[in-house]
Design a protein around this nucleic acid. Structure first.
Lengths: 209, 209
DNA sequence: TCTGCTCTTGACCATTTGATCAAGAATTAT
DNA sequence: ATAATTCTTGATCAAATGGTCAAGAGCAGA
């Protein structure tokens, strides 16, 4: 009994190139339409590839989606990971917030992809949320707590501070349509970053006496 | 030439009841799966109604969706509308933030419905965003600006302050899966509300000398 | 009661869509 | 060169899904 459809064992140049093309196209399509809304045909068309050919590289639609999520999950953690316990608290938080704002601006599609996934219950990345993410946030909350204990920033709940930073920074990517509509123009990312830093950090300064 | 399918002209009791049932079920389904992900069959099943019967009340899937959005759009504006120019700034903002937090807790499904719609480009509510919403935000930004000019709160960009409030408060509804995963438990809405008020308002207090 | 309208549904249809297959083209290794 | 493997695609399929239809059941007013 022979298998009828052998899958490649090694990763050839062509595979690397085409998988990359597919993921690039898929990010466009999935971020615009969500998992259910996206169609394999759309992704194939954007990849300039026939549908069967696309499905030669990723057997199922879901495989593309999962690969895409995994492809960017670790990038997402990086800025928070860099929060340095030994650094100046306000400088560190400012850097983190700025980094997140820049990620939102540079890659809004990835942000929307995640937002959509979480909005719909995060069926594919539950493990990521409850594992590495939770772990890292716990660790960094400790750092923030130690800053508070040392009297270097105002006492606020570290977890909710992190949630607030995520919420505000990602808002500019995920809800850009609303932001632009309300402002009546394309949002100015420089101005937004400055305003966000002020709003989130001003309250953390300890009053000098 | 006679029309083959007359639609009811008046609104009977049965219509009112069934439309309500359908919208209730549709909120569940649309908020969980998005417009494309939701199926008419699912909504019909949740309404305990046959599909053709459901489509007797709403001819197309899209009609249910639009009705649902319109049904809650005005509710969404209400808390901001109540921001009182004559009141104490911090009290007014605290009330607004609390109201938004309570809406997120009381009706997370409606919040997710909107979030999903905006995330996907807001095709159905573009007019709402560029019209009534923009108008109201412009008006209330003026109010905040006047508070700043009077030296009653710290100088921050009013638009971005409003965005920050929206972002943070809706985060608890839209991303509750992530919040719960990171906290390792069901989020405590009382604690969240307290933390959010501190984080957003502390920075607005003007330093007394 | 009878007439006309509203309400309900089983059966059905057309389209979309995720996925398969067989067969040929291109590439790589020997 | 040539054999083996990888890559590509037109044709096709089965399931899901939005929507229609005709016919009957229920209900309200005369």
């Amino acid at each position: 009994m022979s298998h009828t459809k052998a899958k490649p064992v090694v990763n050839t140049r062509i595979q690397a190139r085409n998988k990359e093309l597919i993921l690039e196209a898929a990010l466009d399509v999935f971020s615009a339409s969500g998992f259910r809304g996206a169609t394999v045909d759309q992704i194939a068309a954007k990849s300039e590839m026939s549908k069967p050919n696309l499905l030669y590289y990723f057997r199922r639609k879901e495989d593309i989606y999962v690969a895409l999520l995994e492809h960017t999950l670790s990038d997402w953690l990086e800025p928070l990971r860099e929060l340095n316990p030994a650094g100046d608290p306000l400088t560190e938080l400012a850097r983190y917030i700025s980094a997140k704002m820049q990620m939102s601006e540079a890659n809004p599609k990835a942000s929307r992809l995640f937002a959509n996934e979480i909005l719909h219950g995060a069926p594919m990345i539950e493990k990521f949320l409850k594992g590495p993410l939770r772990q890292l946030v716990a660790e960094k909350s400790q750092v923030i707590q130690s800053w508070i204990a040392a009297g270097n920033i105002a006492p606020v709940d570290p977890y909710h501070l992190i949630f607030a930073i995520w919420a505000v920074t990602q808002h500019y990517a995920d809800f850009s349509v609303q932001v632009d509509a309300v402002l009546g123009r394309r949002e100015d990312s420089k101005a937004a970053q400055k305003a966000v830093l002020e709003i989130l950090l001003r309250g953390l300064q300890v009053k000098q006496s």
